[in-house]
């Protein structure tokens, strides 16, 4: 069942000082997100990801088109009772402590008393800020603010959370924590809609993705379908080598690189792989690993983004087409 329905959503911004002209930030976006799925919203900077999320949060008014969350229009206050949102590069009241911020957020959802205290404490522990629960946010690092932001987005136990670039500004440990939190939300049946340009994170946790570029949807679907998971070759890593061994391997493999006493070999087809492996065994070289090569989301993303036409199209030009 779709939990987020976006139909022909379009947003123009007026730019220019005297002579304002509209520039299209989002162009007739159609998208559905199903209940319980983790949905990755991908695109380079300026693609329209944050604009889409802000339209869904009712922070921006659409130029045309409509969106519904949980079957209700995005302007419905009641619908906002059921959702959570972490803005991009979030900033919260720096005179508050995490406990105060979460208590304030909870009160806006009508929570109070023991229940609110319990949720506040458990969320602060979950995001790893137990040691700084009563420290003012002005003394927090960017990563810590991001964690508080995640906690405040979950205070109402939402059915769906919108996370705008939740991994940005986090160190590897922090990114792993966010990943863990998203996976635990998924396990509890919470729908997660998150935008990112850090592709390995998306690859690791998303059921479906949509790729946006210059305000237009390029592709949406299951990761496996988008990547058309096929092995495009193999990478063989061998210990030792050098000299004539390297030269001979160059005759068999498409690519041969010597790095720190290790040979990295790349072969495209099965026949060459078998020949290369036979050579390795015959010469008694130490085989370290054999891995299939498949296009990463990153490569797919790059080829798609670079293939898209240049420049955001002015709305007026769009209207003429």
């Amino acid at each position: 069942m779709p939990i987020v329905e976006i139909e022909n959503l379009t947003k123009d911004f007026a730019v220019g000082f005297w002579k304002k002209r509209p520039v299209r930030a989002l162009d007739r976006l159609n998208l559905q997100v199903n209940e319980g799925e983790t949905f990755g919203f991908l695109g380079p900077n300026g693609a329209g990801k944050s604009t889409t999320i802000k339209l869904l949060m009712s922070l921006l008014r659409p130029t045309s088109g409509a969106a519904r969350i949980l079957g209700k229009p995005v302007s419905s206050t009641a619908m906002h009772q059921e959702i959570g949102y972490l803005p991009e590069n979030p900033y919260f009241y720096d005179y508050l402590t995490p406990v105060e911020l979460l208590t304030y957020a909870g009160k806006l959802f009508g929570l109070d008393g023991d229940e609110l205290r319990k949720r506040t404490k458990s969320l602060i522990d979950d995001v790893g800020l137990g040691h700084a629960a009563n420290r003012q946010l002005r003394k927090f690092s960017k990563g810590m603010v991001q964690r508080v932001g995640l906690a405040q987005a979950l205070i109402n136990e939402p059915k769906i959370v919108f996370l705008d670039e939740p991994m940005s500004g986090l160190d590897p440990l922090g990114r792993m924590d966010v990943r863990r939190i998203i996976l635990s939300l998924k396990a509890r049946g919470v729908t997660v809609f998150f935008s990112s340009h850090i592709l390995p994170d998306v690859e690791a946790i998303c059921d479906r993705v949509a790729i946006l570029n210059k305000g237009q949807l390029q592709e949406a679907g299951k990761l496996a379908d988008i990547l058309k998971v096929g092995v495009t070759g193999h990478e063989i890593i061998v210990a030792g080598g050098g000299g004539d061994v390297t030269d001979e391997l160059r005759g068999i493999c498409e690519e041969v690189h010597l790095m720190d006493d290790r040979l990295h070999l790349r072969v495209k087809d099965k026949e060459r792989m078998e020949r290369a492996l036979r050579f390795v065994f015959d010469r008694k070289l130490g085989l370290i690993s054999v891995n299939p090569i498949r296009p990463s989301l990153e490569e797919h993303f790059q080829s798609m983004v670079s293939a898209a036409p240049d420049g955001a199209r002015p709305a007026a030009a769009e209207a003429r087409n």
């Binding site: 802000k54 949060m57 009712s58 922070l59 206050t77 009641a78 906002h80 009772q81 959702i83 949102y85 972490l86 803005p87 979030p90 900033y91 919260f92 009241y93 957020a105 806006l108 959802f109 932001g149 405040q152 987005a153 109402n156 919108f162």
Partner: peptide, 9 residues
């Protein structure tokens, strides 16, 4: 700060 605030009910 208004973003997180207005996304709430």
């Amino acid at each position: 700060t208004v973003y997180a605030l207005l996304a709430k009910p």
